[in-house]
Amino acid sequence: NQESVVAAVLIPINTALTVGMMTTRVVSPTGIPAEDIPRLISMQVNQVVPMGTTLMPDMVKGYAP
């Protein structure tokens, strides 16, 4: 099972992602793959992401799977 990126904290809208904001977990449905965390650093979320929420591609500005 592939791990997906999950919010480790509440991430406010338009916040640039940092390593500490993200964790990984096997979830269903799957979100952004864990191995993409290095690509996500400094990208901004386009909505509020509650802690424990799986990051989906459409939540991150400029992210393309």
Rank of each mutant, 00 (worst) to 15 (best):
S4Y: 04
D58T: 15
P57N: 07
E3N: 15
E35K: 15
P12N: 14
Q2T: 10
T24E: 13
T18M: 04
P50D: 07
M59G: 02
P33D: 05
N14E: 05
V27H: 04
M22D: 01
K61R: 11
A64I: 06
Q2K: 15
N14P: 01
T30F: 07
G31T: 02
A34W: 07
M22A: 01
P50V: 14
L40P: 00
Y63L: 07
T18N: 08
L10T: 14
A64W: 12
D36N: 12
M59C: 03
A7W: 02
T54C: 03
I11C: 02
T30A: 07
A16M: 15
A16H: 15
Q47F: 04
P65R: 02
Q2D: 10
G20R: 05
P29D: 10
T54Q: 04
G31D: 01
Q47I: 15
D36E: 13
K61N: 13
M22G: 01
G31A: 05
P50K: 06
G31F: 02
V27C: 03
P57T: 15
P29C: 03
N1Y: 06
K61A: 13
M22V: 10
I41L: 15
V48L: 14
I32F: 06
T23K: 13
M21G: 02
M51Y: 11
E3S: 11
R39P: 02
A34R: 12
T23Y: 13
I41V: 07
K61F: 14
I32V: 08
V48S: 09
V5Q: 00
A7L: 02
V49C: 03
V6L: 09
G31S: 03
D36S: 09
R39T: 09
V19H: 11
G31Y: 02
V9A: 12
T15G: 11
Q44H: 10
V5G: 01
Y63D: 04
T15W: 06
L10G: 12
D36H: 14
M56R: 10
P50S: 10
P38T: 14
R39K: 07
N46L: 11
N46S: 11
P38R: 13
Q2E: 07
A7T: 05
M56E: 08
G62V: 05
G62A: 05
Q47E: 15
T30Q: 12
S42N: 11
K61V: 10
T18F: 07
V5A: 06
A16C: 04
V26P: 13
S4H: 02
A8W: 10
S4A: 03
Q2V: 09
L10Q: 15
P50I: 06
V45I: 06
M21H: 14
P33S: 07
M21N: 11
Q47V: 14
V19Y: 10
M43R: 10
Q44F: 15
A16Q: 12
V9R: 08
V48E: 09
L40H: 01
S28R: 03
R39L: 05
T18D: 14
I41K: 05
L17T: 00
V48F: 13
V60T: 02
P65D: 11
L10P: 06
M51Q: 10
A64P: 06
T24C: 03
T15Q: 10
G62F: 05
M21C: 03
D58A: 11
V45Y: 00
I11F: 02
K61M: 07
T23M: 14
M59Y: 10
M21E: 02
Y63W: 13
R25S: 07
T30E: 11
A8I: 13
L17K: 00
P38A: 15
T53H: 09
P33Q: 09
T54N: 02
L40G: 00
V5T: 05
P65V: 14
N46Y: 08
T54E: 02
P12L: 05
E35R: 14
R39D: 04
L10N: 09
V49F: 01
Q47C: 03
V48N: 12
D58Y: 15
P65C: 04
G31H: 02
T53M: 08
N46T: 11
A7Y: 01
D36C: 03
L55Y: 00
T24D: 02
R39G: 06
T23E: 07
A8P: 01
S42Y: 05
L10S: 14
Q44T: 10
N1R: 05
T15Y: 06
I13T: 12
N1V: 08
T15P: 00
Q47T: 09
M59H: 10
G52Q: 05
M43P: 01
M59A: 06
P12W: 07
L10H: 12
K61Y: 09
T53K: 07
M21F: 05
P33T: 08
E35F: 09
T54V: 11
I37F: 11
T15S: 08
I32W: 03
G20L: 13
K61E: 15
M59S: 03
Y63P: 04
G52A: 05
G62K: 09
P65G: 14
Y63H: 05
T24Y: 08
R39E: 06
E35D: 10
G62E: 08
P29F: 05
V6R: 02
N14V: 02
Q47L: 12
L40V: 06
N1S: 14
V27Y: 02
M59N: 03
S28W: 12
P57C: 04
S42A: 08
S28K: 07
V27T: 09
N46W: 06
Q44V: 12
V48Y: 10
V9S: 06
V9T: 14
V60C: 02
N14S: 12
T53R: 09
L10W: 11
I11Y: 00
A8D: 14
G20W: 05
N1A: 14
P57M: 06
A64T: 11
L40M: 15
G52E: 14
V48D: 07
T54R: 04
T54A: 05
Q44A: 13
V48G: 13
G20I: 09
T54L: 06
I11R: 00
M22W: 03
V48R: 06
A7C: 03
D58E: 15
P33G: 07
G52M: 03
A34I: 07
A34D: 05
M43F: 12
A8F: 07
N14Q: 10
S4I: 02
S28V: 14
A7N: 01
L17W: 01
V26S: 11
T53E: 10
Q44Y: 11
T15A: 13
L10E: 13
I37G: 03
T53A: 14
P65Y: 02
L10I: 10
R25Y: 07
G20H: 06
Q47D: 08
S4G: 04
V19W: 15
P65L: 09
R39N: 13
D36T: 07
T30H: 08
L40C: 03
A8E: 06
D58I: 12
V60N: 01
V26C: 03
L55T: 01
G62T: 08
P57H: 08
V48I: 11
M56Q: 15
M43W: 07
R25N: 13
L40Q: 00
Y63F: 15
S4N: 02
A16N: 13
I11K: 00
M51W: 09
P38F: 11
Q47M: 10
S42C: 03
V27W: 02
L17R: 00
M56A: 06
P65M: 12
G20A: 13
N46A: 15
M51K: 14
A7R: 00
V45S: 09
T18Q: 14
G52S: 04
V5I: 10
P12I: 03
A16W: 14
S28G: 09
P65I: 10
M59T: 04
A16S: 09
L10R: 08
A34V: 07
V48A: 10
I32T: 02
T30R: 14
T18P: 00
T53G: 06
P29R: 12
P50W: 07
V26A: 14
D58H: 13
A64C: 04
S4F: 05
V48H: 13
A8C: 04
T15R: 07
P12T: 06
E3W: 11
P50T: 07
E35T: 14
I37W: 11
S4P: 00
Q44E: 10
V26N: 15
M43S: 06
N46I: 13
I41H: 04
L40W: 02
V9I: 06
D36Y: 10
T30S: 15
V48P: 11
M43Y: 10
Q47Y: 14
I37M: 10
N1C: 03
P57A: 14
V45T: 09
V27E: 05
S4M: 02
L17P: 02
P29Y: 07
T53D: 06
T24M: 08
M22Q: 01
T30Y: 11
P38S: 11
A7P: 00
A34M: 10
T30V: 15
V9Q: 15
Q44S: 08
Y63R: 04
I41Q: 12
L55W: 01
T53L: 09
V6S: 08
V27M: 14
V45R: 00
I37E: 04
T23F: 15
T24N: 10
V9D: 05
I13Y: 06
T53S: 08
I41C: 03
V27S: 14
I32L: 05
E3C: 04
M51N: 09
R39M: 11
T53C: 03
K61T: 12
T23A: 12
G62W: 06
V49N: 00
P33L: 05
P50G: 07
P12D: 05
T23R: 10
A34S: 13
